[in-house]
Write a protein that binds this DNA or RNA. Structure first.
Lengths: 111, 111
DNA sequence: CGAGATACCTTGACAGGCGAGGTATCTCGT
DNA sequence: ACGAGATACCTCGCCTGTCAAGGTATCTCG
């Protein structure tokens, strides 16, 4: 967990949408995938994750359904909506711009 | 102002430190420089700026002094401290890691 | 039968961003 | 002489996202 949460603040929704764009998934799995892809440098706290799901669903960017009853604990699956895909595209665009701007503002200058 | 504020949240201090690393400056000028370097895509709100100055000074990362009395409104100048330079180096490192992690998490996947 | 993993969820506190409002000085056009 | 707009500073209180802490239930393995 080498990246502080405040730095990632505001990217939570985009990260979740990006995971769901690859296929339906559920909270625990999404979180594991994120941690893994981040090389252990970042992971959601559970409270953050479920707060985000609620927010995303209220905004119509994802929808949810309970998984089939099988062995193990019940799972709530999430699926990205069309509006969610549009939001994700916008988020990716914004991230691209953010990188350019922050690189310009934080860059190492030799003086 | 195409980049939303939440995305930049947490980067405010690093941006200010980076400006001050190039030389002492004052609020209004820092803000102008930031806007200009960001190509108009981002700028601090005044309240954000002065809140940040106070926070940074309390944390010993910058110090301040009133400029010489000349024509025009008085100016409070800020200077980066040694601790501030160390923080800036850490922030730059973190930003570099953040880019790598977010690129991995938000990337466009063709499936 | 207990520990640990899987899997979900809520509450309340905290911190940063910022809209709105305020003060004072200087310049420029009329 | 006067008003508008730029320069330059500052504070108060709200909003929103994060998260520590706490809670529930199921399955596996020793």
């Amino acid at each position: 967990m080498s990246i502080s949460a405040d730095i990632l603040r505001g990217h939570t929704d985009a990260i979740i949408l990006a995971q769901l764009a690859a296929g339906d998934s559920y909270g625990y799995e999404i979180n594991k995938n994120v941690s893994q892809r981040a090389g252990g440098a970042y992971g959601f706290k559970e409270a953050t994750l479920y707060t985000a799901f609620k927010r995303l669903e209220q905004n119509g960017l994802i929808r949810s359904y309970w998984g089939e009853d099988g062995p193990g604990a019940r799972r709530r699956y999430y699926a990205i909506t069309l509006a969610g895909r549009e939001q994700l595209a916008a988020d990716r665009q914004e991230w691209s711009e953010t990188k350019a701007v922050l690189d310009a503002l934080i860059e190492q200058k030799e003086g």
